[in-house]
Amino acid sequence: MRYDLIIFDNDGVLVDSEPISNTVLAGYLSELGHPTSYEESLRDYMGGAVHRIHDVVLERSGQRLPEDFDKTLHARIFAAFEQELRPVAGAEELLGQLVADGTAYCLASSGSHERIRVGHLVAGLDEWFEESWIFSSQDVGRGKPAPDLFLYAAERMGVPAERCVVVEDSPLGVEAARAAGMDVYGFTAMTPADRLPGATGYFSGLAELPGLLA
């Protein structure tokens, strides 16, 4: 293993939440008078913190989203998670292999701590993560594509940035990892490689990852 720490993104990498959350988000924005397709939601918001949604809508329309937008959005997403959320294929096997090999890992997500916890409980991944291994954009001032979250995770885990590798599936996440001075492998299950420029390498299934990082 040529890295001392693997930093996983969560949504779309460990839990198969992106189709669910972007379907909900597109529908809610459209309800509010900001017509958004599923594909546009993926393009504009995948991998970003919720404040990015507010910023983009305000910039494009000059209108602010309702004060209860975040609360309503999360309630709708959590309800959908309860019905539909599953782990990404191979996630449990990969985490089990990392534990068996003694490889250090953590999670750095644009989602809130509540969203991460709910998702892991529903998907059955909660047993693989100590609370102190989970980092959210809530913990830092700026979410992805700023490098703050990945740098914070590395600092808290006690590993220099240059000894970390990030596993990401969004353009914003790849950009953030590069800005943090970390290698980053792009997961292409949902996002084509050409939309993840600057990644150190690419893979389409989690089973491929150990070989890439060895």
Rank of each mutant, 00 (worst) to 15 (best):
M1F: 02
L5V: 04
I6G: 01
F8V: 02
N10K: 03
N10M: 15
S17H: 03
S21T: 09
N22V: 10
N22P: 01
G27S: 11
L29R: 06
L32N: 08
T36I: 15
E39W: 10
V50L: 13
H51K: 12
E59A: 14
G62P: 00
R64H: 04
P66H: 09
E67K: 05
F69V: 11
L73I: 09
R76M: 13
F78D: 05
A79S: 05
Q83D: 11
R86L: 15
G90Q: 13
E92H: 14
L94V: 15
Q97R: 15
L98K: 09
A104M: 12
A104V: 09
Y105Q: 07
S109L: 12
R115S: 12
R115Y: 10
V118Y: 03
G119K: 08
V122K: 00
D126S: 10
E130A: 11
D139S: 06
G141W: 04
F150A: 01
E155H: 04
E155L: 11
R156F: 10
V165M: 02
V167W: 01
V167M: 06
G173Y: 00
V174K: 01
M182H: 03
V184E: 01
A189T: 03
A189Y: 03
A193C: 03
L196P: 00
G198T: 07
L206G: 05
